[in-house]
């Protein structure tokens, strides 16, 4: 259920811009870690590199000790890592059930044709994530932002990840919706899921993580226990824009 993530000396350059510079950290199995930093610090770029959407310029990414840098995104997902996006990306003309179905697809084209959808599993995932059975046939355009975030997590969960990367998972949510998503993450933590969570809402993030990694200008400026990182002068300065 849990996966270990090791990032070693990760460098990503977009032309002359260094988005991440020599980033290294480790997340132990079952740990929940907050990735924090001001806008443009490089948090999402780290996610994109872990998923293989933007391959790193240098450095290594290991899941359970195995290097995954040479793998394409779908293979990394099969290795047990999956992510959500800042802006939910549902399949706009498909129902909630069909959106989850895409995450549950087998790898083989033949199996896609010959084996029907696993309706029970679709309902199970939807219900685990807090989407009611009455919502399964709805289109994403009929869902609230909170439910869209849930759908995003449901599709991610359908790929059976052992490590989930949640990007700005509380953005645009009401207080009630934040509480629902938090409960969801907590219950998955209890089941042993490893998390790396990016959030600007530090109040909502705090109860969900035990460790934090702070980055600024693409470099790790602090990491350790959440309270220690948040109490660090350099982290405070980076948020206030003086670092």
């Amino acid at each position: 259920m849990s996966a270990k993530l090791e990032i070693r000396n990760l460098v990503k350059k977009f032309g002359g811009l260094t988005a991440t510079n020599d980033v290294s950290f480790t997340i132990e199995p079952g740990q929940s870690v907050g990735l924090i930093g001001p806008n443009g610090a490089g948090k999402t770029t780290i996610f994109s590199q872990i998923m293989g959407e933007h391959p790193q310029t240098k450095g290594e990414i290991l899941i359970d000790g195995k290097e995954i840098s040479h793998l394409a995104t779908p293979q990394r997902i099969h290795a047990g890592v999956s992510r959500t996006y800042q802006v939910p990306r549902p399949f706009s003309e498909m129902s909630v059930a069909e959106n989850i179905r895409v995450g549950l697809m087998p790898d083989s084209i033949w199996d896609m044709i010959t084996r029907g959808p696993n309706r029970e599993r679709e309902v199970e995932i939807a219900s685990a994530i807090g989407l009611g059975e009455d919502q399964l046939e709805r289109l994403p355009s009929e869902l609230s932002m909170g439910d869209l975030r849930k759908l995003e997590m449901a599709r991610t969960l359908a790929t059976s990840p052992r490590l989930m990367l949640l990007d700005e998972v509380f953005a645009g949510l009401t207080v009630n919706e934040i509480a629902v998503i938090s409960d969801l993450v907590q219950s998955m933590r209890d089941d042993g899921m490893t998390f790396l969570i990016v959030s600007h809402d530090l109040k909502a993030l705090e109860p969900l993580v035990d460790h934090a990694i702070a980055i600024n200008h693409g470099e790790v400026i602090a990491q350790g226990q959440y309270q220690d990182v948040m109490g660090s002068d350099i982290v405070r300065a980076s948020y206030l824009g003086t670092a």
């Binding site: 779908p74 990306r89 003309e93 895409v102 790898d107």
Partner: peptide
């Protein structure tokens, strides 16, 4: 509808 999301769902 969204090629990146298909890839992000583990499909080739």
């Amino acid at each position: 509808m969204n090629e990146e999301a298909v890839s992000g769902s583990g499909l080739s």
